[in-house]
Design a protein around this nucleic acid. Sequence first.
DNA 1: ATGCTACTTTATAATGATTCTAAAAAAAGT
DNA 2: ACTTTTTTTAGAATCATTATAAAGTAGCAT
Lengths: 137, 137
Amino acid sequence: MNSVSNFVEKLRNSGLRPTKQRIKICEVLFNTDKTFHFTINELSKIISEKIEEKISLATIYNTVHAFKREGYLKEITINSDKSYFDTNTSHHHHFFDNLTKELTDLNDEDVEKIQIKKSLPGKKISSVEILVKVENE
Amino acid sequence: MNSVSNFVEKLRNSGLRPTKQRIKICEVLFNTDKTFHFTINELSKIISEKIEEKISLATIYNTVHAFKREGYLKEITINSDKSYFDTNTSHHHHFFDNLTKELTDLNDEDVEKIQIKKSLPGKKISSVEILVKVENE
DNA sequence: ATGCTACTTTATAATGATTCTAAAAAAAGT
DNA sequence: ACTTTTTTTAGAATCATTATAAAGTAGCAT
Ligand SMILES: [Mn+2]
Ligand SMILES: [Mn+2]
Ligand SMILES: [Zn+2]
Ligand SMILES: [Zn+2]
């Protein structure tokens, strides 16, 4: 489904030249039918496991941030400890299990339409995101 | 409204003895009718401006975290850059203006009841929080 | 293809928030 | 007053992230 030409397009759109390292990063991020959540460190580990040559952290940070800027990745903020990224770029929400530290998608359709009855003068809403924290029953 | 005896109670409930430094921190946090949002660094600055003697960062961190643990403060996570705390401990949501970095309360009553139509097996919801990002009109 | 230039990668250093440490100070207990 | 426990504090350690600057590579024009 996602092939090198697709990665090249994503990189170019993000203002990045398609280098060997960046293509490798794309393979990990986009060469799957399932979307997933990751931290930069996890991504770095996945890359070093799957790939013979190592990619420096600086390159990974730069590439991930460029993709985020362009909208090919979303950043999810749960707590101040860690920054999570998401390859699911559709508008959606999250469950977070504080015990297992697991993030689960909560699709927009799975939430009754949210009505905000307050507004701020001179401001308009640019996004509404819900974080549902869960615990064991 | 909030006086020293009230601060002493909050400290004791949080497992802390009422020392001079901790009472000063309470005065900044709780000796006001308005609730507010702050970062630890901002709190540290406010304290050093309002008070002759200086309180070490370690003491401020420890005290704030003890209050959070006990529920006298809430932590609000907007992005991974900074950790915000909130003296408003009622269940509520937030507006965040990414330009001004300003946080504004959005009361529970100002949001139409949220219905989550999906559930995770073996898990129950412990909190639902909404973050509304705003931008200039 | 060759060379020129701009972009990229990388190792390493810097930064900044938070936490840890251990010694001095303060408070509590006897 | 003396002893023990708790607290404060300065400074060190840690850890994620960002910056730097030198060496490598890609794109483009000859
Ligand atoms: Mn924290
Ligand atoms: Mn970021
Ligand atoms: Zn997601
Ligand atoms: Zn608030």
